[in-house]
Nucleic acid binder design. Structure first.
Lengths: 345, 345
DNA sequence: CTGAAAGCGCTTACAG
DNA sequence: CTGAAAGCGCTTACAG
């Protein structure tokens, strides 16, 4: 307990009167070690407070039971929730999660990937499929498993050469659900507040899906009616201000996520626009707060915690069985609440 | 680029025509290597796509430039923000962050600490000072640096034997600020909605500080007026329901954090209680959404991102200079907004 | 069921 | 300024 430095495997071996090999085996495959030897080793470990050195173990084994995840930011409940799901599930399987963010900076992503590779992670999880060639090269060369979450290529895959498994949502369908709902309510003039679509396939596909349904109903969504704003309440507010300058003004707005949608709602409330009478708003995510505010937010529910859990499972089976990657598409659902209704006649 | 496995330091050495020692030196102390040797090595690294193996490095060096942080949950914006600050700052200094959560389960915390120690982290960051003896023993025995954040012992230290540096807030002062504000508005009947105080020194101290100021004004806060609820909007709602059954009913409620405060506000709105005319509410944290809702939330602003950044700095100086730990107390501030006002006369 | 030995990929005194 | 060698703490065939 009060040795000068932490105990090593040979200290345990000495105290238990066995070789280090046996201690190692007692730890990794207890069944091949005689019960009373095992007991002596157990006692020695307890009295010394021995904790194995993971670096040495990783070096000897060639893999570290480590997974690296890179999310755009943790400062968004949806990513935090997904990370939570990932972490809990990996942790239960004896893996640790190394977590980093790139704050929507593609160059930062490459650097973060390099940092993770230096830690000899067994796998890397990225958000979305939009990554720089440098990032993807780095991962390919190092031969660690790659998994992309939040996206699902769907039938019309964007890049067939992209071999990485994905676990995510049908982001186009999110836009479609929003558009269909608003169209059926009777809306004909639409606006969209999206996050930046550059380097963000999720945002792009949501807008695409929204536009697609409108087109099927013979409605064209002009470029000017789609505004891109930084993530945050202020982005949502600024987006609505811009849309309200259009003539004729939209009667319904689809927002790329709930934070933008709530910013949009707050701005409407602040400037005397009645929601949903004068303006309908549909978001995406279903944050816990979305159902609490007044009026409560109509949104597309995304099971983000479950996303983290499923991603972890796919990762684990990839790493264990060396099984072929199995992509997954998680179910999403439109939740109709107070911010959407028929347009003012 | 297309070798069967990733390049090692000896591959680089061979290609550059030097020894591995020189490659290693070129990486760690470039100034002692002749410029053209360095250039050849740089080229070799580039053509091979060499990424050093962190496990081997950590084993040879005895430390891994890894920091482990354990937060109660990531599913709370304040922890996510602090982690974000930690991660960004550590990353800039060449350290990686291993992140885990224990979901308010003390036994889980011990297991997570063990898992982190196995990864040979150089330091561990915990939230608060309430930890099981097992957790603290494990850390003490392994001789990694320990830092506790979110708490500041203040003049009346709880446990003088606790040698770990802390970076945090004066949680008693949070309660004092809330109480003084509400008292000055004219309130005399108070309620408190707190998270569970067991194993949570922050929650406990906030309530203590609140109670202390009331006592100084000759007001006793009965035990029944302090309700403990699980973290979340539903906890805040349930808390208000309980407080409203008291006779006489409180005219002002202090909530241990903004999520509880918003739940309390939503419940009040849902049951026709006019805030702030019939009920004043004060929260703690100042989440981004707190200033956006209507009425906006009176709260005690806690710089949580800054907390992560400062924690990282203290950690880095601890690890670099082996300097004596320097605890820090970050400034907090009452922000008066729409949910607090004079009581209905 | 157990031990001696080699090796994982790096770093760092120690010589030159 | 550079190289040969030992060592970091573990694991795992290979013998016994």
């Amino acid at each position: 307990m009060s040795t000068l430095s932490r105990a090593r495997i040979n200290d345990v071996a000495a105290l238990a009167g066995v070789s280090t090999s046996t201690v190692s085996r007692a730890l990794s495959s207890p069944d091949v070690v005689k019960p009373d030897t095992r007991a002596r080793i157990r006692d020695a470990i307890a009295t010394l407070g021995y904790v194995p050195d993971g670096s040495a173990r990783a070096l000897a084994l060639g893999r570290g039971r480590l997974v690296g995840a890179i999310v755009p930011t943790l400062d968004n409940a949806i990513f935090a929730r997904a990370v939570q799901g990932l972490q809990t599930t990996l942790s239960d399987a004896g893996y640790q999660l190394l977590i980093s963010s790139h704050e929507y900076n593609p160059a930062a992503e490459t650097e973060v990937v390099r940092a993770l590779l230096e830690r000899s992670v067994d796998a890397i999880v990225l958000v979305g499929v939009d990554h720089t060639p440098q990032t993807l090269d780095l991962i390919r060369v190092s031969r660690v498993a790659l998994l992309e979450m939040w996206t699902y290529p769907g039938s019309a895959a964007e890049g067939a050469e992209n071999a990485a498994p994905v676990v995510g949502f049908d982001n186009r369908e999110i836009g479609r659900l929003a558009a269909q709902h608003l169209y059926e309510l009777g809306h004909r003039r639409f606006g969209v507040i999206s996050g930046f679509t550059r380097q963000n396939d999720r945002a792009r596909q949501r807008v695409e899906g929204f536009r697609q349904i409108l087109a099927e109903h013979g409605i064209r969504l002009p470029e000017a009616n789609v505004v891109e704003q930084p993530f945050g309440y202020d982005g949502g507010r600024a987006g609505l201000k811009l849309l309200m300058q259009l003539r004729p003004t939209p009667t319904a707005v689809f927002c790329g996520n709930d934070v933008l949608a709530m910013g949009c709602l707050f701005e409407a409330q602040g400037s005397g626009i009645d929601v949903p009478r004068q303006l309908s708003i549909v978001g995406c995510d279903d944050l816990p707060v979305s159902s609490q505010i007044t009026p409560s937010l109509t949104t597309v529910l995304l099971p983000t915690y479950e996303l983290g859990v499923r991603t972890a499972h796919v990762l684990l089976s990839c790493m264990k069985d060396d099984a072929p990657p199995e992509s997954e598409c998680l179910p999403i659902e439109l939740v109709v609440r107070g911010t959407s209704g028929p347009p003012d006649a």
